[in-house]
Simulated assay, not measured.
Amino acid sequence: MKNFYKTISQRLILSILILISCVFLTGLSIAPEKVPVPQAEPSVSEPPPPPPEPEPPPDGAVIDHPLPEDPILTNGPWASAHFLMDEYACDCAGYCDGWPAAMDPELLEKIETLRCYFDQPIIITSGVRCERRNAEVGGIENSWHLSGHAADLYCPGVPYDEVARAARELGLGVIEYPDQQFDHVEIWSQKV
């Protein structure tokens, strides 16, 4: 019986050594050796060239805006089939109750139609705003966000100018922000 346990112990130790050797050798073959590349030292008399000026993205460019962090909340009152009312609420740091004005029902309907047109999420980055939040984000004094007649939005993966074109076809007023790749949409006829 002693020989039996001795044989099993030897085989177990041998198996472990083979396994460790395989893992070690596999690691060596996967990670190629990095050889430092000598670099010339920069000349002291020559200043580095200035960085190029950033150019606004061309029409049709898409900045990969992220979707909101998971989990996406689905409880609360709905503004439409795909949007919660909270998505339109003022995102200030507690200066107001989130609803300094009601959202225009026609705007909510047209944004829902826009979402259905692209058949993918539309992200509302700003809906109604209180005056203090509007000032913080650099909104104009009589912004239509203050009265619930405007929203800023984007559609991940869809160029902002395509979203703007579709919004205009729905009768929305649109201001495009190419540098930030989003659109401001508003109901012009309902301004109070």
Rank of each mutant, 00 (worst) to 15 (best):
V174T: 06
T74M: 03
D70E: 08
I122Q: 05
E109P: 03
Y117I: 04
R133A: 08
D183N: 15
D183E: 14
D119N: 14
P54Y: 12
P36C: 11
Q39S: 13
I122H: 02
I20P: 00
S9E: 09
L28R: 09
C22N: 10
P178E: 06
D179Y: 12
Q181G: 06
V163W: 08
N134G: 15
L153Q: 11
A40G: 01
D104W: 02
S126A: 02
T26L: 14
I140W: 02
D152N: 06
L108H: 03
K34I: 09
V37Q: 11
G138T: 15
E131M: 08
R168L: 00
E176R: 11
I124G: 05
L107D: 05
G94D: 12
L25D: 02
D64S: 10
K191S: 07
D183S: 06
K6G: 09
T113C: 00
P156C: 01
C116Y: 12
C155D: 06
N142M: 08
P47W: 01
D152K: 02
P77C: 00
I63L: 14
P58A: 13
Y154Q: 08
V37I: 09
E33Y: 03
E169I: 01
P50W: 03
T113R: 07
L114K: 05
F118I: 01
P105E: 09
L12A: 15
N3S: 09
L108R: 03
R115S: 06
C116E: 15
S126N: 13
A89L: 14
P66H: 08
E106A: 15
P100K: 07
G157R: 05
L73V: 01
Y95L: 10
D97F: 01
T7R: 06
Q180W: 02
I111M: 08
I63F: 12
A150P: 07
I140T: 05
A102H: 10
W144P: 01
P49N: 01
S80W: 00
E53G: 06
Q39F: 13
F118Y: 01
S15I: 14
L73P: 09
P58K: 15
E55Y: 12
E169D: 11
S29P: 04
P100E: 13
P58D: 00
Y154H: 10
C90E: 05
V35E: 15
H82N: 11
I140P: 11
P105F: 03
S43W: 14
I8V: 15
E186K: 10
A61L: 04
Y88I: 08
K110R: 08
G173L: 03
K2P: 10
I111N: 06
P105R: 14
G148E: 04
H149V: 07
P52G: 07
V192E: 04
A79P: 04
V137L: 11
R168Q: 00
Y160F: 07
C155Q: 09
Q120N: 13
M1N: 02
D70N: 08
I187H: 10
N134C: 11
K110N: 13
P156W: 00
P77L: 00
P77R: 14
S147E: 03
Y160D: 02
A150S: 10
